[in-house]
């Protein structure tokens, strides 16, 4: 999985032009748009599928992993960006991995200390964030070429985009599989959250497929299909509304 991202640093073609330090006004807005929708790590880049599909059996698990990934992504992006002048090009990947691994270890120890239940239910997928190609992909494609502020903001947005996909998948699978929402939230949020569990539907028997890995793949497929459908509809609308203008002047499209 990690190979695909490291071989294609050009994940976000628009980034190469952003090497200048002075910030353009639309840049942050562009980062939000890229991270949450257009270049969403879960839905478009399809990076980090292994934890994405494996742990999203419940909303709580998804939230735990989403927060952990978000934290690691922001910190690693900031650090990679801060040391970008001193990192020799030839050994940059091992250095990125070391930085990411350091932050993952922090997160793992913190979760072990303060959220032991969720630490146990995430299991191996918490340390496996190290190999999450969404993180190393951002370090390589964006953080290593941009100043700290933008890089950490990009980490924040990409992390939120990834966490949102996790949360949607987690809720859908929990709802279909057990008929509940926020089950086990107290493992992550503390004892007050015990009352959060909502029994939406009462099933006589669980819909096991939604909880099993194939269900994750099917649900993921539906999410991607829904995103593409929305994009297509938008594009059609845009094409329709901009038709009269085409006659007046030549339009230049910048594919981002």
């Amino acid at each position: 999985m990690a190979d695909s991202s490291t071989d294609t640093p050009n994940v976000n073609p628009g980034d190469e032009t952003n090497n200048t330090v002075d910030t353009k006004p639309g840049e942050y807005r562009e980062l939000v748009w890229q991270g949450l929708w257009k270049n969403n790590p879960g839905l478009v880049q399809l990076l980090g599928l292994c934890p994405l599909l494996a742990v999203t059996t419940t909303f709580t698990n998804a939230l735990g992993l989403g927060l952990a990934t978000l934290f690691v992504l922001i910190c690693s992006n900031a650090t990679v960006s801060a040391i970008r002048q001193w990192v020799p090009k030839e050994v940059r990947i091992p250095i990125f991995v070391l930085i990411i691994a350091a932050f993952v270890t922090c997160v793992q120890l913190l979760m072990n200390a303060y959220a032991y239940g969720i630490y146990q239910s995430l299991g191996i997928f918490l340390p496996l964030i190290v190999t999450n190609c969404a993180i190393i992909g951002r370090a390589e494609a964006y953080a290593s070429k941009n100043p700290i502020k933008q890089a950490s903001f990009d980490g924040l947005m990409m992390g939120i985009g990834f966490a949102l996909v996790l949360l949607v998948l987690g809720s859908v699978r929990e709802l279909l599989g057990q008929g509940t929402l926020f089950d086990g939230a107290h493992l992550l949020l503390g004892d007050w959250a015990k009352g959060l569990t909502i029994q939406v539907v009462e099933f006589d028997s669980q819909f096991l497929l939604a909880i099993l890995p194939p269900g994750a793949f099917i649900a993921m497929g539906f999410l991607i299909a829904a995103k593409n459908a929305i994009d297509n509809r938008q594009a059609q609308k845009l094409a329709k509304s901009s038709k009269p203008k085409e006659i007046e002047r030549v339009r230049v499209n910048f594919e981002g």
Binding site: S205, Q206, F207, L208, L209, A210, L212, P214
Partner: peptide, 10 residues
């Protein structure tokens, strides 16, 4: 297969 995997009892 969907049914067998999801509802083995029934």
């Amino acid at each position: 297969v969907l049914l067998l995997v999801s509802f083995p009892v029934h």
